[in-house]
């Protein structure tokens, strides 16, 4: 299960958070934990360079894209490698929507599109789509090209 997908800006403010199967009372812990993790480790990290951590049986893969940091949390079958696949899909979709690694402003300008992409990529904790071209078409309700 992909437990959480979270976007934050460089100051640690949340831009998008989507949880699956995480009780409401634990979300605050996650939020602050991830933001702290980012603050401790993401300084000076290159775009899309992946960082990884684990806490008990839960894995976290995170990275930076432009002004935005992205965190993906998973457990069981979504271990660090599966999550790196998920975060790769997410970063390429975001880059595709924004045309480049986004500034915070650009990210917020494209907010609706990005939400649609996430909706295509992760569905209630499971990975659904993996190709950015297909996702780009799907969010416009166009059928995929390979079809």
């Amino acid at each position: 299960m992909i437990l959480a997908v979270l976007f934050a800006n460089s100051e640690g403010n949340i831009l998008v958070e989507r949880f699956n199967g995480v009780p409401a009372e634990e979300r605050l812990h996650w939020r602050s934990f991830l933001v702290k993790l980012g603050a401790d480790n993401l300084r000076g990290v290159k775009n899309e360079e992946l960082l990884v951590a684990c806490h008990k049986s839960v894995y976290i893969v995170y990275t930076v894209l432009g002004d935005v940091s992205i965190f993906v949390v998973g457990k069981d079958e979504y271990d660090e490698l599966a999550l790196s696949e998920v975060i790769f899909v997410i970063t390429s979709a975001v880059k595709d929507v924004c045309g480049k690694p986004p500034t915070e402003r650009l990210f917020l300008d494209k907010y609706g599109r990005i939400c649609l992409c996430l909706d295509e990529i992760v569905w209630k904790g499971y990975l659904e789509s993996t190709e950015k071209d297909r996702i780009r078409r799907l969010i416009r309700l166009k059928p995929p090209t390979e079809f």
């Binding site: 934050a8 939020r31 915070e104 402003r105 917020l108 300008d109 907010y111």
Partner: peptide, 16 residues
């Protein structure tokens, strides 16, 4: 950390 701070005066980078 939950909400975006809205007291930033940087005009060029203001949030939509």
């Amino acid at each position: 950390l939950v909400k975006k701070d809205d007291d930033r005066d940087d005009e060029a980078d203001y949030s939509p």
